[in-house]
Design a binder for these strands. Structure first.
Lengths: 262, 262
DNA sequence: ACCTGAACACCGTTCAAGT
DNA sequence: ACCTGAACACCGTTCAAGT
């Protein structure tokens, strides 16, 4: 209900300050007063998110972990939304680091494949970030960098600009979609380790088997595949479908089509 | 913190009761006491979600719209999470209705394309549901039905069960991913109609242009495409890449490949 | 069987006050 | 320039009480 006039203290915090870093404040003077940094705040937020999901990220819990008061977080971040954006973006920083070596190979599509897989791997076990990629350009430069890095590969293909733009968007969307889908796979007990993954898959398998065969012929048809499947493999299978289509569109004659194998 | 023992009153509500429907309670007797139904609760929740997004869905706001007390919602639904699951599933009911006529055509992949587009169209303007599809099998039968319907088309292709399973999962994930991506496109002002879509796109275009060309060569390369692109078209372009790959995998010789057109 | 509304625990955000 | 913590408004959920 209150209109945001952009005058909160955090809006005075220059984003360029993001590269400072001060450490834990275990120095000589401070014992009572805590001292943070943007990176420390975001890093601790990611840790909290990974441990207990989105509902686990609380300003109070975060402040406790940082050893300070609730209010001080607002010096670095103007809202919980911005905190989540920065957390998601910091995950993409890892992806960028792991795909830094790419771009030299002679097959652009193979490079895109590697980037997408690295992106996927960063989302495994992080159901919370599905919805926060590319939220705001201002705070999320890493998302744009990954987008651009993938785009540079696509530029090497014989495609129109529109086709290049669409291709990168499609691959990114697919990765996000798989991440979002997998996010809700294990409902809670699995995350906490109360029920192991195998038991969860088995009980879902039984649920599928209990459905009427006439109403759900396909689910019955693939129920064993479901029980035996590996998420990462399935991700790659779908990615390869998309990349095979891209290769076709680019009129590839150099490399053989890569999908349709496993 | 409290462990859910599954003993809440809502767990006694049989899901089979979902097909009752009682109306608004504008009858002869009731003037003080409100009377609801599962469908009314979910329908009003969807309306609230569409109007003001996920933060707009509040038990108090929902109760006010239904003309009753907060507590009564818990008779139909055991938590906000379940309410969101049912809301997402009710959107899928529309998709099912709109794809009911499909399945008779001679090109299975074209049918899949229609289903995916119908699914996509249902997500337009609903950034809230990206994360709630296929959450829980028990409450979300429509998701499984759509999955199965698409699967029945894939069964007609010459593929292994694993390939069929992977293909349906890939298409579904892609749709969800596009929905999630588009979810955060307009940051707030656009939703509220304060700033129109065109102005938002233009300002983002300018933001891209302001980036260093050496750091973001691809973004500069496609900046005009971005300003001119249509979301639905871009969705179809990516879908067609994936389906072209699928057609290739199925060893299609009957129909010509459909991607690589616009 | 279903609805009510006060009460509880908790959360994001603000702000006057400190250093 | 940055940290503190009480205070505020609001939210999901519970529950004894009603019909």
């Amino acid at each position: 209900m209150t209109t945001d006039d952009g005058m909160s203290p955090a809006s005075q915090t220059p984003a360029s300050r993001a590269g400072r870093g001060r450490g834990g404040g275990r120095g000589a003077a401070g014992r009572q007063r805590a001292s943070h940094s943007l990176e420390a705040v975001v890093a601790e937020a990611v840790a909290l998110l990974d441990e207990s999901g989105e509902p686990g990220l609380t300003f109070r819990a975060l402040a406790a972990r940082l050893g300070g008061g609730v209010g001080s977080i607002y010096w670095y971040v103007s809202s919980k939304d911005e905190l989540l954006e920065r957390a998601a973006d910091s995950v993409l920083a890892d992806v960028l680091a792991k795909t830094d070596h790419l771009g030299a190979g002679d097959d652009p599509i193979a490079e895109i494949r590697e980037m997408a897989i690295a992106f996927y791997e960063a989302t495994v076990g992080r159901p919370w970030l599905g919805a926060y990629f590319l939220q705001d350009t201002g705070t999320q430069t890493n998302g744009l960098m990954l987008y651009d890095r993938m785009g540079r590969e696509v530029m090497r293909l014989d495609l129109t600009r529109r086709q290049q733009f669409d291709a990168v968007s499609a691959v990114m969307a697919y990765v996000v979609g798989v991440a979002a889908d997998r996010g809700q796979d294990p409902p809670q007990e699995v995350r906490d380790g109360i029920v192991d993954r195998g038991a969860f898959v088995a009980s879902f398998r039984d649920e599928l088997r209990a459905l009427d065969v006439d109403d759900f012929p396909f689910l019955h048809h693939i129920v064993d595949e479901f029980a035996a499947h590996d998420d990462a493999e399935q991700f790659r299978a779908g990615l390869d479908l998309m990349l095979a289509g891209l290769r076709l569109q680019a009129g590839s004659s150099s490399a053989d089509t890569r999908a349709a194998s496993d």
